[in-house]
Structure formats: structure tokens, C-alpha cells
Nucleic acid binder design. Sequence first.
RNA 1: GGUCCCAUCGUCUAGUGGUUAGGACGCUGGCCUCUCACGCCGGUAACGCGGGUUCAAAUCCCGCUGGGAUCACCA
Length: 485
Amino acid sequence: MSTGKPRLRFAPSPTGYLHIGGVRTALFNWLWARKTGGTFILRIEDTDRERSTPENEAIILRDMRWLGLEWDEGPDSGGPHGPYRQMDRLPIYHEYADKLIASGAAYRCDCTKDELDAQRKALTAQDPKAQFRYPGTCRDKKLPANGDRSSVLRMRAPSSGAVTYRDLVFGEVTTPNSALQDAVLMRSDGVPLYNLGAVVDDVTMGITLVARGRDHMINTPIQILLYEALGATLPQFAHLPMMLGPDGAKLSKRHGAVAVGEYREKGIPAGGLLNYLVRFGWSHGDEEIFSVADLVQKFDWEHCGKGDGKYDPKKFAAIIFEHLKRPDLTSDEAYANGVVPFLAQRGLTDAPRAKLLAALPLVRERAQTFVEAADALDYFFRDLPVLDDKAAKKFLVADKASHLAGLRAELASAPVFEPSALEAHVVAWLAGKGLELKDVAQAARVAITGRSASPGLFEVIAVLGKDVVLARLDRAIALVAAAGA
RNA sequence: GGUCCCAUCGUCUAGUGGUUAGGACGCUGGCCUCUCACGCCGGUAACGCGGGUUCAAAUCCCGCUGGGAUCACCA
């Protein structure tokens, strides 16, 4: 605050895994903090004790790190405005609750939930369309601030007037106070509810810009009233449109993967995931593909859209593929790091780094995920390729035997083991026999890769090296001979 | 139902009074080719409706319709 630099926060609730909708919110906050040289804070809102777990918190932290959305202040790293876990901040909320009571902005209410539920039920029985609102029973009871623990804290909501604020994406938003009611701010057990916890934390942590999902927009007027009651400086607000499922319903598991962890396990690069998410509600002219560094430079609030969007798996796959194809977005080193765990899953734990880096370029434009890349890379790292039955039956046949033997001899005598030279060498030999490349290519491919589809034959041969290729051809020649016998 | 919000191809979007309404994904026709891909060229497809304002409206205003959010001692 004193530095004048923006302070932003992402405040997930550890009641479940990190959801990609949440990531989008985190990303926008993080981008703005990084672009402006501000501070990005991770705050854990764990006041829902029934559903919050330390395991979920650990998952959120792990996934945020995997995404590269590092925080400057947070529950594990600490910072000058901690603690960063709401259940560790209870005394702060109590202090602010007392301030609100003292100023008359809030009061204690000892109506029980059962009483209120009964009233609600009675009302709806009488008029099904009526909406129950707290009748203000305890408004003027002047219950002691720190007395009976069975009382909740309620805000004294104004019934007239209106709250207007300027949203960075939605513009001016006005809500009449008549729509408000005396909302509960703190439970009878002394744990704050969302509106109180968020406001007190945002005030005490010096948050200058609150960017969150549009589903929170309804809370903003209440929170603004609280800021005013506390005499605190208002932050700016930016609400982000919703990301829905392909059918327009709330994005959920039945639409596919929603947990960040699932994307990692499927071999999705983090940068690609972020690229897809940023395009949800933000644009930069016709540009679609961005590195994280691009985004830090280009992101702004002016070009955030207001309309909700639907998640599109096809578009998602296309953006991911783009990141996987382009070395400027996923460097060879990063690609290698990304694919290594999936090679390990196939038992290929000792793939030599140099060979991996040499083989990668052949696979990039053929793999939509690191999982597919590991599959495409498989035969580079086995002594002998796993032969695909159908491919072998079709192409490793008797009438190819002499071609394979001839190819073996040509490769054995090839002066340079480099793709274009190899191709020229082989094509020349074939031409002498009145043959074309396609007459031997598939048989050779199956012999060398075990499959009927692969990157360019000579590129593969060059990466594998002469000894390996000759050995594989020898095995195939032997197989053909055995089958013919 | 109350309150708030939104509305351009199927999807993500560009567009801020004058454009043949652009791009991307998808779908599709073709080219390239040792297989599979990549790539390249082309096609398909949108301003929800109705009123205004204006010489001129996808762009501004109003209404309608449609969609979403929210109305807990969840966040």
C-alpha cells in the first residue's frame, strides 16, 4: 500500500482440488501483479471447516507451482501481512467484529438457526414465491459483543440508498440497498463467514485490486458497505465472466477434466493450459497464441470481455498442440522435462538426454500431449522396437526380403549418416534397380520402428545411428526368413 | 420470484457510427508426400427480435426475448 504498487490476491478455499476456473482467476491476478511489479498473494480461505482439508491445501499449492503461478506472500512462504490462512487469523476478525459492533454497523443476534428455518418455512408455506429475509429481531437487543457464544454477528444493512462502484470489466454497477438484508458476518462459533473474512483480510493485507469470478459480484455491495463501516480505503474490483461447460451448464466433472492435476497427468504443458484459459474473457486483437512472458507484457483489463464462455475441448487441444509444436513456446529442454515422466511410466527410465533431445523434433508435430509424445518416442529407447503385429504381417513379408537386405547393405556402406544424404544414397540405389522409395519404405519402417506410422524414415535412421538400425534390419530379415521357411 | 449481469459464425473472439463484419478452433474440398503427421491453398458459417437517434448503427438509447449469477451460521 505504501509502495503504491498493486497488491492482488488469489483466495481459494481448500474444499477441493484446484479447478481450472479458479486457475483462470488466479492467472489474471498473477499477470497483473507481474506486469505492474506488484505483489501476488495466496490466501487460504479455510473457514468452512467441514469441507476444508490440509490435503486439499497441499494440492492447491502444488498445482499453483506446477502452473508457474508463484506467489510473493502465502501460507508457506509467509510475508509481512500474515498469517495467510484464515483459521490462523481468528483474533483479527474478532477485533474487527468489535469495531463493527462499536460503530453500530453490526450487532449480535441470538436467533437460532432452527427458529429462522421455522420462520422461513412458515413464510414459504403461506406464499411459495416469497423470499425469506431476516426480520431484524435482534437489531436493537444490544446483545453484549463478547457475551453469549451462541450469538452470530449480523451486519446492520441499510434499507434505502444504493451502492455504486466502477468495475474494471463491467463498468458502473449499481445495486439498491433494498435488496440487502442483515447478513450473518460471523458464526456463533466465532469463525467469520466469507464476506467478513474476505473484507478484513483484504483491508489488513492492503489489497488494492480484487479480481474474482462473476459469481462473487453479488457480494460486492455488502463488502463495500463493510469497507465504509470500517473507514477503509476501497480496492478496485474486477469481475471475470464465468467459464461454463460445452452445454452452457456450470463446468463440472462430467464435461471432462476440471482439476489441474488431471491435466498434468494427461501430459498437458502448463503454458498451454494458461494460454487457453487467458483467452477466456481476454483478447489481444487477433492474437491467440501467447507465451507466459507475452501475457505478462500484454495483459490488461480493458480487453476483458463480459460474456460468459463455454469450454471447448477441441479448441483446448489445438492450443495445447500449438505449444507442443513450437520450440519458442516449449523449448527442447522443457519438452524433454515434460516427457521424461511419461517415458518412465513405460519403463524407459534411462533415456539418454542427448538422444532424447535429438529425437524430440521428429515427434513434436505428431503428439498432442506428453503422453502421446512418450509413445511416439518409445522405439528410440528400446534395444529392439516392439513390433506391431498387424504392421509386421502386412509389411514384413517374403517379397520384401531382398529389399530389406539390399537396404541394409546400402546403409552399412553409407558414408554420411544424415537424413538428406541417406535419402539421396538410398534413392539412387533404388533407381538403379528400377524401384522407388515407396517400394521399401513401409517394410523398412516396420523393421526399424515396429510400426507402420512414424516420422520420416531417414530422420529416424539418423537419430538411431548405424549400429542400431542395422541390428533392427537384421532382426526383421531373420523374421521374414523364418516366416518363409 | 427479487436483485445483479450478459448477448457477433456451432465454439473462443476482433470490432468502440461508414469494413465485402476479420481471425482462430471445428467441419469440409484440394495440394504436398516413404507412412503418420506438420504445412499450404480454398469453402462453410454470425451481428437474437422490435422500436428509436443519425445522412449512416454490430457499434448509441428504450423495450422484448433468451441466457447466466445470487438470494445459507458455503465460498
